[in-house]
Structures are given as C-alpha cells and as structure tokens.
Write a protein that binds this DNA or RNA. Structure first.
Lengths: 339, 339
DNA sequence: ACTATATGTGCAAGCGTTTGCATTATATTT
DNA sequence: AAATATAATGCAAACGCTTGCACATATAGT
C-alpha cells in the first residue's frame, strides 16, 4: 500500500556509485571520503530518503528496540518507570515498545511471544498479578533475548531484577502508625501469589508482633484489590464490634476507594481511623485529608533496569542478582492525630 | 548477541522439503497437504521455531504494526483511547507501538521519523500542544503511510480526523452552571493554538452571551495549564473584588488543582464557588465534593480511529473528513447548590 | 488411452541493508 | 623507480522470509 519509497539503490544509481558506498556514507563510515559523503547525503536529502529499519534490522540482526511489558499503561508508577527507561534508552539509540498485560497471564505470554518474533534486543518486564509460573519466561529466554524483571518478579527465574523494598515499606508504615498511637491496624493486601504482596504480608505480621500490637486475622486480608473486594472488606471492618483504627492499603487506588468509603460512613480521617497507602499517585494529594503513602522511585527503577539490560545486550553480562530500591514514606494528614 | 535461532530453512532441511513449503505450511496455505502441514508444524514446535517478524515484514513490505502517538502515557483519556485501538487492532492481527511526545513538537517530529523508518503500516496521532504547523505530517505522509488524527488535530492537514465535540462540551457546561444560578463564570483554558482550546474559548464566549451573562476578560484565560499557571490565575481570581462564582477548567488535572486551591482559601464548593471540568479522570470522584465533568468517549474514539485507519490501509480508502464524537456531561456535587 | 484439471511441492528471485573481502587509485617509503 | 602502505570504492553474499511460476503427480472427463 505504501508509496514505493526510495532506497539506497536509487541513490546509488543516480550518483553512479555502489549501494554499499551509499550505505557506508549514510552511516558515516570513516572509509568514505568527505566529498562522496557530502554528495550522497545531499542526494538522499533531496530524494527524501528514509532508512528502512526493517531491512537494516534484518541485516544487522538487531532491532535497537527494547520491549517493555507492564500490567497497565494508566498507572503512575509504571509511567514513571517508562520515563526512566526511555531516558537511558533514547541516549543509547534504542527505542522502546510498550505493551500492557492488563494483569492477564495469557496476555503476558502472548506479548512475550510477539516480542520474541519482533526480535526486540531485550525486554524489561513487570509480571502480571496472575503470573505464578515461569515457563513462558524460560521459553522466551530460549530465544537468547536478555530480560530484566522489575517490581513484580519471580525469583525462580534467573535474570537481573530490580525491586522495591516492600518489606521495609510495610514495616515503616506500621511503625509510623504505631508511633502515632493507632492500635488496631488493618492491612488490605493484594494476592499473595505476587512477591510484592507476600512481602507486605510478612512485614505486616512481623512488625505488629515487634510493636506488641495484636494481629487479628480479620484485619489481615489478601484480596484481588478490585473495587468490590475493597468495598466488601471495608464494609465488614467498619461495621464490626472491633473496628480497625488504621488501614494500610496495598496501593494508592485502594487507598482512594477506602477513603471514600470511610467518608461515606461519616467516620473521620485520621481521628477515628487512619489511612496509609503503600504506593503513590498524585490523586493522593488532592483528597482531603491528603493520604500518607510510600513514594516509589519509579524513574530510578526504570533507569537502573535499562542500564542493566544494556550491559547484558552490549557486553553479554549475565547476572542473577536483585537490586533493591529504596523508597520514602511521606507522612500526610491521613495518619496522625492532632492531639 | 542472540542465540542463533532456528529458521524455516532448518525445518526444511530436517524434513527434506523446500523452505517455501515450510513457509506456506506455517502460514496455513491451502496449497499444502494436511499431512505435510502436520509434519512441519510438529517439527517447528519441537525445534522451538519462532517466526522472524523482521524478515517477514521485509519480505511482505508490511509490518502489521500501527504507531500510536499521544502527548502523555499517564493520562486517563489517552489510555482509554489506546485500549480502544488495541481492541480493534488485536482482532485484525495488528500490534501497536505507542510513543509519547510529552507535548514537545520536536519529540513529535522525531517520533514520526522513526515510525516512518520502522515502516509502521499506519499511524494514529494526537498532536502535541506545541504543534502549530503540519510540515512534519506532510513529510511523513510522503512515505505513503496512512494517518488518522484524533482529539488534537490540525484541519489544514488532509486526513481523517476523530474529535470530541468540544464546542458543545463547553456550551453545556456553561448552560448547566447558568441554570444553577451561577453568574460570574470563569474559564481556565488551554493554549489557543490548539483546536480543542480555541473551540472551548469560542463556545465560552458564545454561550455566555446567549445566556445573557457578563464576559469579564479576566475570567476568560488562555494558559499553558501548568500548576504555576493555575495557581497564579486562581490566586488572582480569588483575591479580586469581583470573584468568579464558578470555574470551568480545561481538563481534570486543572480541576483537581483548582479544587485544592479553593479549599485552601476556605471557600466552599459549590456554595461559594462552583467547579466543573472539561475532561474526566477517576480522581474526580474521590475528592470532596466530587467534581462535575465531561466524560469523553475515549474507547470509542480509539475504536473509530483504528477502524478508519484499517479502511485506509487495507482498502486504500482516502478521506479528509472529521468525525465528531459525542460526550456526556456528568453532574456531580461541585456544581449545584442545595438551596 | 489421451488430453484437460486439480493438487501439492520446489525453484529462485526479491524485500533493502550491511559487511568482509577484493580491487583500484593514490600516497609514502626506500 | 620499484615496492609497499594507505585510502576509497565496488562486488557479492548474507539476513530469513514470501511468492509467482514452473513442475510433477494424480484425478477426472471424453
């Protein structure tokens, strides 16, 4: 369908040189005289020549493309990660190809298959919440394409990983609430099949115990974090004899939903009930009161992941280590009482 | 760097057939017997064969890839559009390649250049807010690649366009406020170089006049919608002798910022001042009071754009018309007084 | 039996670049 | 001036797949 575009052969013919000379000239090879280069570049310009990357990729067997797979596009953390990746990638002459799994395992497999077919030079991925096995990762790797995993990873798959210190995030959140005098802390967690959430859960239990606070099983939930799950959990909590006086949510969206539900029940935050979130997004600053949260280093995670990937792509470096990124607990008005 | 992957030639050799037969079998050509197909598919499976899309693309001179260019990834509307595009694309065997301009004209040019080099089969784009010319679109089109523009478009470039009925959106917003008894309506608008915002501006003026309301120049602003711009405008408005009793913001982010600023000034929404937004995002439901807004048909916009693009790619259909998508004004608590 | 018609497979060119090696022209050394 | 190094360019194969055309069997029609 595309209008017949012009090729290096067209340029070569018009100038009575070999196509190889044109190719070298356009790639600024030192083997071509400045005079010839000049001539070729001008002619290319004039004819409106545009490199055919697919031919180039085939010939060089590299596409200079990095696949990025994330659960959702419309997510603050992931878009920060993408920005970080792009920043490094762009400077090194790579472009990125983003795809979202929508937290579906099947979509994740599908995406990896097509990225493999597309011959991306490497992949940076955050696994879907449904992912509990690694066969698809292994068969992807069988193609020899480097991969680095971030955030939601599987430790039973060998590759470099960049993760958040989820354990400490929960630990600090609980400690903060405990210091502020909250006693019945509830945790609205995510599916424990996912490393993030199981780390949260472990830290939650450990830290409560260390702080000498009770761990009521009904206050320690693992859900799929859908709006229904959240409404159900909060509904039960707020109508029980023993109510939580603080809630920690696995992510910022859950925190927003919870804050709304609490308001609807005419309970006040943070006086009657405190609220903190384990991830951040701008909306947390816009609700009243502003919600205490963990600020994740998205950009940094992206930059590090990309840097690791490049080391593997360009220097064949193969590692199986895990980099743990620090975070910041940002205390806002939702989590301490003005006594 | 990639482990030498296996090709159709490997399969052909092992089975003593021609590579062309393998190719046809794997593409399920009717010209190959079921027996042979079976044999080939099994062998391919066994060897872990994976189609090399770049070779295939070069050979067929089509990539089955659609480029999608948007200002920002992390935006509710655009991610809905992407979902709509994906939905159609996926079913037709196309994958999509998303890139963000971050509202930079230079980045937009750059992206179009590399998409052209990548030989995407078509492009769906929403122009950056900096874009005021169309030369880059023309030179892109010179490559013969179809394009459809959505949301932020330029009418001086010939192609199909899918836009929101921005004029009516503003018109209905103003009418709603007027009906609710607000008199001094202010408009926090975007840069008028962009079709969206100039349409808003025109509708704002027209509708005020029609409603017999005053149009105070200081209440009709065109800004770049940065947080600073917003803070400055609102600061002036709220401290003037004549304050607005209603504010219409160009987008949801501005609405959130404004709602926060109003709260900080201890003014009440909607009693002392009403607030409505011309775009929507989930955060608008989480703030108190919930903010009245225009719900844009993102998914629908994406699906329509993709459908148009496919018509052009697959049937050579060339049009230069504009499809205007309807929207819904969702009235929430920020814009009417409980008398 | 003897052309016509399917049916299944192979051959080889082509897609647009890149790149190792060969070749020629020019410059340097002895 | 001959021998050697250097610089600039061309040749041709390769990257892995697709596809029009030719070819060889097998089936059907008369």
């Amino acid at each position: 369908m595309a209008k017949s575009s012009i090729t290096i052969n067209d340029i070569a013919r018009e100038l009575n040189v070999a196509p190889s000379t044109v190719s070298r000239a356009l790639n600024n090879s030192p083997k071509i005289s400045d005079f010839t280069k000049q001539k070729i570049i001008e002619k290319a310009e004039k004819l409106g020549y545009n490199l055919n990357m697919v031919a180039s990729s085939l010939s060089r067997s590299r596409t200079n493309t990095i696949g990025v797979v994330i659960p959702f596009l419309n997510n603050f953390f992931y878009s920060e990660v993408i920005n970080g990746i792009e920043e490094i990638a762009y400077n090194k002459g790579y472009r990125i190809l983003v795809a979202q799994t929508k937290d579906s395992f099947d979509k994740e497999k599908e995406i990896l298959r097509t990225m493999s077919a597309t011959r991306v030079d490497g992949v940076i991925a955050c696994l879907s919440s449904e992912t509990t096995t690694t066969d698809h990762l292994r068969s992807f790797s069988a193609g020899g394409i480097p991969m680095v995993l971030f955030d939601r990873v599987r430790f039973d798959f060998s590759c470099r990983k960049v993760v958040i210190d989820n354990y400490s995030a929960m630990q600090q959140s609980v400690s903060h609430l405990a210091r502020s005098g909250y006693k019945n802390i509830a945790h609205l967690g995510g599916p424990s099949s996912c490393n993030i959430y199981s780390e949260h859960a472990k830290a939650f239990k450990d830290t409560l115990k260390k702080a000498g606070l009770p761990l009521l099983p009904q206050f320690h939930l693992s859900t799929n974090l859908t709006e229904e799950d959240i409404a159900e959990a909060v509904g039960i909590w707020l109508n029980a004899e023993i109510k939580p006086d603080a809630i920690i949510t696995a992510n910022s969206h859950a925190a927003l939903v919870v804050s709304k539900l609490i308001r609807e029940q005419k309970l006040s935050i943070p006086e009657e009930i405190a609220l903190t979130s384990l991830t951040c997004e701008p909306a947390l600053h816009f609700v009243e009161p502003q919600i205490t949260s963990i600020e994740l280093p998205g950009g940094d995670t992206g930059r590090t992941s990309m840097t690791y990937l490049l080391n593997e792509i360009e220097h064949g470096e193969q590692k199986n280590d895990t980099t743990i990124k620090p975070f910041q607990l940002i205390i806002r008005n939702s989590s301490f009482r003005n006594k």
